[in-house]
Amino acid sequence: MLTGIHIAFAGGDARHLEVIRKCVELDATVTLFGYDNLNPPPVGTTKGRWVPGELTGIDVLVLPVVGTDDNGHVESIFAPGTLVFRDEHAAQLKPSTLVFTGMARPYLLNLCQRHRLRLIQLLDVDEVAIYNSIPTMEGALMMAIQNTDITLHDAQTIVLGLGRTGFTLAQGLKALGAHVRVGVRRPEHYARAFAMGYAPFYLRDLAQCVRDVDIVFNTIPALVLTAEVIARMPPHAVIIDLASSPGGTDFRYAEKRGIKALLAPGLPGIVAPKTAGQILANTIIRLILEKKGNQEGLP
């Protein structure tokens, strides 16, 4: 249980409604900042004003998956404007406060470091990334179906990267009967792809592997689909870039060539916000309980 733990939510989207619900169920004290348009608020919660004094005594602060921008702005789909997370807000938090976000830009990293706050980037936690790869895969397949005039069955597909998302995506494509080639950098990933029945190749050979491709799925957050590569793709090919913005595709050249290229980061929150929220909730609650157990001298 989370009895006696004060959790604040600053901004967020539909995923956070599931996290809020789970925290209330476990008897946490929950305060919402930036939820002005959410009427009525979830049962068991209180709306707060985003002023430094109202952050005193908070044990856990949950920020949006994107954290803050480079100026400290915190987005919320439930409020008409944005909150700004400033030094005067952070100064009111206890050094023991846990701050959860999906990913942190330098502004948030520096702010938490200055005030000795423990920042946890959930998208770096293996269990979150692995679970999130499932709705990401489903969303990517949906986009592929919507933006092509062929079936995925028997399609020539390429998955770039065999990380947590690429692994799950390649499995899904293979299950649907697609021909799956996997572009990797590391020999162990090449061996893993081969063992799983895919056709692996090294990324240095990508330009030679795209001549007959129907759909390319990129999961690598670096420029891999360069103009040189795109120039060798057939005109009907579609690129679905799942890497975090700005992606790994030369979108300017793809447009010039008439190649459809779509940047699609953050698919879990778009295609399955309830499931994505449950994934975040389970990990956040586990980490809070682990901290509580350590403070109480439990193993």
Rank of each mutant, 00 (worst) to 15 (best):
A261R: 10
K274N: 06
K274Q: 09
E255V: 01
P273E: 01
I270Q: 15
G269W: 05
A254Q: 09
K260W: 04
R257H: 05
G247D: 12
A254M: 10
K274A: 06
A272L: 06
G269R: 02
P265D: 05
G269F: 02
T275Y: 07
A276N: 14
P268F: 06
F251N: 03
P265E: 04
D250L: 05
G277Y: 09
V271S: 04
F251A: 01
Y253R: 02
I270G: 00
F251G: 00
A254G: 07
P273M: 07
A261Y: 12
R257A: 08
A261M: 08
F251P: 00
A272V: 04
G258D: 07
I259M: 03
L267A: 11
P273T: 01
A261T: 10
A276F: 12
G266C: 07
Q278R: 15
E255R: 11
D250I: 04
K274Y: 09
V271Y: 10
A261K: 04
K260L: 11
G258W: 04
V271N: 11
E255M: 09
Y253Q: 02
K260C: 09
G248Y: 14
I270L: 14
V271A: 07
A254I: 04
R252W: 05
K260T: 14
G277E: 10
R252G: 00
F251C: 04
F251S: 00
K260N: 15
P268N: 02
R252H: 06
Q278G: 14
G248S: 13
K274V: 10
K256P: 03
D250F: 04
L267W: 11
G258C: 00
R252D: 11
A264D: 03
G266R: 02
R252Q: 10
R252T: 04
G247K: 10
Y253W: 08
I279Y: 05
L262T: 03
P268R: 02
K274W: 03
P265H: 03
Y253K: 05
L263A: 00
K256D: 12
G269Q: 05
R252P: 00
G266N: 08
A276S: 15
I259V: 11
T275V: 09
A264S: 05
A254E: 12
I279K: 08
P268Y: 02
A261I: 07
T249F: 14
A272K: 13
Y253L: 03
V271P: 12
K256N: 10
G247M: 12
L267M: 14
P273Y: 05
G258N: 08
R252C: 00
A272Q: 13
K256S: 12
P273K: 03
Q278I: 15
I279D: 05
Q278W: 13
A261V: 13
L262V: 13
G248F: 12
T275C: 08
G258K: 05
G248C: 06
D250A: 04
D250Y: 06
R252K: 06
P273N: 08
G248I: 09
V271R: 10
G277H: 15
A272Y: 12
T275G: 08
A276E: 13
K256G: 14
R252V: 06
D250S: 01
G248P: 12
